[in-house]
Design a protein around this nucleic acid. Structure first.
Lengths: 122, 122, 122, 122
DNA sequence: GTGGTCTAGACCACC
DNA sequence: GTGGTCTAGACCACC
């Protein structure tokens, strides 16, 4: 799995790493139970410090997307949480995105179609 | 129009101001062509530095949501439909939200229903 | 407020800092709304790296005990969360402590008395 | 006696083994004088290294909960009452738990009731 | 001035 | 060998 990072972005690198891994899980490039690269190897590969990778993994672990074991490294969580609270948490962000879409003249049907396609994609 | 800010949030204040104004435009509290408060008066009202308001306005201007004229201050843009720039900007964020929803077990129908409701709301 | 740290302990320093601050809030040495030292000043004072203090503050923030603002530094949260979920989270740790007490011949009344005293203390 | 371990927990395996054995002694599943499995058999059973079991046993021995003899393997200690050493060891942990409970709005009566129930349980 | 992020190293506990 | 912690620096965004 290849991570595409933008070092000049405002989004911190560890957040970008987190986001990329979430996208990977969502579209199936990373399967539940699959091992992730070690801190060191991923850090080497993408040219960042191990602390930065560690921070991303800590966040993903805390969010329940991965688990880390001292002996086996990190792997994608096997029972992804079906967390009811998720939509509550992301409600505000979604509301903002939809408001922007509306202002930009995106009709409801159109917006739902885009969402539908993105959902199918991965 | 009242802006609700959370000073202890991770989201920078100028981004919060921007977001609130976008929500206001979307739900009709701010009409196209309507004048926004001056930097100074808004800064006074919400208790922040004028530079912070200025930064929010600059961002909104750059995104095409408002127009600023030296004489008249800022006002909501009157032709707001430019789908393409929006979809380019927001595609990534929407994709991430949908990916997270999927991983958390939110079914497509359910997600679209929520979007539909939020679209109707404001 | 003075923090007593044990650098030779197995408990990581950032956890010790967190624990000490929780104790301080509990016994009133730190009042809700009170400002905490800045990362830098606390780090200097106790002779650790700013990252270590930062990690402790991040944890306390995430647990809802403090809030951090970029401009004002960190302060004790003003509405401490009355979180119902707390006893659920700490149930296991309490169960273990009580089991140890029992094995060591501490009678129920005695244990409750100790708890009662500790509760009054701070 | 079955040990339930969580390999993805932050708590080291040898500590989890120790804790489970303490819980077992407390609720009577393990009686004073009862023999514990050998290092090797327990290690096999739960799928860990013998060193890990050994470390747990060493800790339990040091805390006075079990006795190890070269010939007979390990067994639950027959005289388990040494209040003082326990209270010294656990005082700090209990104090912290109670402080957190207080901050989270758990009243003293409520806390004592929960302790009382847990004490009866096992 | 503040918190937040990041680097290039290092050491340690666990297994 | 692995993740976790820590240091001594540095720079940046925000305000």
């Amino acid at each position: 799995m290849i991570l595409s990072l933008d070092f000049s972005s405002d989004t911190p690198i560890y957040i970008q790493i987190r986001n990329q891994i979430i996208l990977g899980i969502s579209d199936g490039r990373l399967a539940p139970g699959e091992k992730l690269p070690t801190n060191r190897s991923l850090a080497m590969e993408i040219g960042v410090n191990t602390m930065t990778v560690n921070k991303a993994y800590q966040l993903l672990k805390q969010e329940g997307y991965i688990i880390t074991e001292r002996r086996n490294g990190a792997m994608v969580s096997q029972n992804l949480s079906k967390e009811e609270s998720f939509m509550k948490r992301s409600h505000e962000a979604l509301k903002l995105l939809i408001s922007e879409a509306k202002i930009n003249g995106v009709k409801k049907e159109e917006f739902l179609n885009i969402c539908s396609e993105l959902y199918e994609e991965g």
